[in-house]
Amino acid sequence: MNEIEMLRAARPEVHDPASEVLDAALVRVLNDAEPSARRRLARRSPRGRILLAGGLGAVAAAGVGLVPVLSGKGAAPANAAVELRLAAAAVRAAPEPTVKPSQWVYIETKVRGVPGQGVMWAPGEDADTPRPTTSFDIRSWYPAIGGAILKCPPIPKEPKVCGPAVASTLVQQVNGREIRLALFPNSSGWDPDDQAFVRKLPTDAGALLKRVYSYADRKAGWQGFDRDQEAVEAIADLMDGHVSQALRAALYDALSRVPGVRMDRNAVDNAGRRGLGFSRTGHGETVQIIVARGTYRYLGDKVTAVKDHPGGVKAGTVLRWSAQLRVAVVDKARQLPS
């Protein structure tokens, strides 16, 4: 007889605790546990919920109500937070691939959306293009060593611009057409496309979230500023690139601490793959990060308008929908993974 059955026999008038209540308690345990204990609990969450149920039932019998949200200033609703903590534990335990400075990071994505709203314009197109491209097959090669942000000498009279001879380059093929982009310094100090920047981000979730909010706060003067939505968008941008297992785990953990993040167990990426969706609504749109069930591999993102946007874009329109099909390390630009 397990604890649930013992509780039923002793107090048959007490209903079983709801799954949301159990999830909330598990999140509190995960928050309070030491990191090593937290990982052990996270890996065996179904069993952990059963063990916790007896204590929760006793609280319920005493007439104490439990609210399925985290304590403190706020965090993701309990079911989303629990799943994100499990994702962090699973990713943290996965092997870390080795990347040499001379190598390149290859990322293959499939994206569609509204140009100028959720996606960039296709090469050679702009707002005056009668029928702009809305679907993109993108192959990108990023230098593993990263951009030359810290070592880039300024051009005379242009202190914030690097000379093309020393700037790293991003090689990209969009719908079969190749473009080369210089990776110049980002004046905001936040550049997910630069591997040198990404490698320096903290892998402690608390420190990372503090850094994310610090970046978000630079937009505090903007109309309709939503600090937590800015944080989710910054995390989504990082998820979309090549990051270490340790940093990806910290991103999941950090996302679990952002208020308003919700989970959809039947999310679909732009390639039709089903997974878990973690989303938040703000700035007139819902941003959803989609990951694979079980492995928690990043699959893509989806941005949907929840109100009318400029240019005749109606509420409900998908502004951006992506699928990250492949991420690999190769020895040179334009090389495809084997």
Rank of each mutant, 00 (worst) to 15 (best):
R211I: 00
Y215W: 12
A216V: 02
A196C: 03
Q223H: 12
L201D: 10
Y215G: 05
Y215Q: 09
V243W: 00
R211P: 00
I235N: 02
P202H: 13
L238I: 09
V212W: 04
G224T: 13
Y213I: 01
G241H: 14
Q195C: 07
R199N: 10
G224M: 05
G224F: 10
A234H: 07
L201H: 03
V232H: 00
L238S: 05
S214T: 12
R218P: 02
K200Y: 01
R227K: 10
A216H: 03
D237W: 12
W222H: 10
Q195I: 04
G224D: 11
D237V: 01
A234L: 14
D217K: 12
V212N: 07
L208T: 06
L201C: 06
G206V: 06
D228Q: 10
Y215V: 14
S214V: 01
A220F: 07
G221N: 13
G206T: 11
E233N: 11
D240R: 15
L238W: 10
A220N: 02
T203I: 08
A196Q: 07
D226T: 04
K219A: 06
D217M: 06
A207Q: 15
D228L: 02
S214K: 11
D228N: 14
Y213R: 14
A231V: 03
V243L: 00
Y213K: 10
V212G: 02
R227H: 08
R227I: 03
H242W: 15
L209F: 11
V243A: 05
D228T: 03
A216L: 04
R211G: 05
Q223L: 13
L201R: 07
G241E: 15
Q223V: 14
F197G: 01
A234S: 14
R218F: 09
I235W: 07
K200H: 07
K210M: 12
D228K: 01
A231Q: 01
D204F: 13
D204V: 12
P202M: 10
A236C: 04
D217L: 11
L238K: 03
V198C: 04
K200T: 12
Q195P: 09
L201T: 04
W222C: 00
D240F: 15
M239H: 13
M239Q: 14
A234F: 05
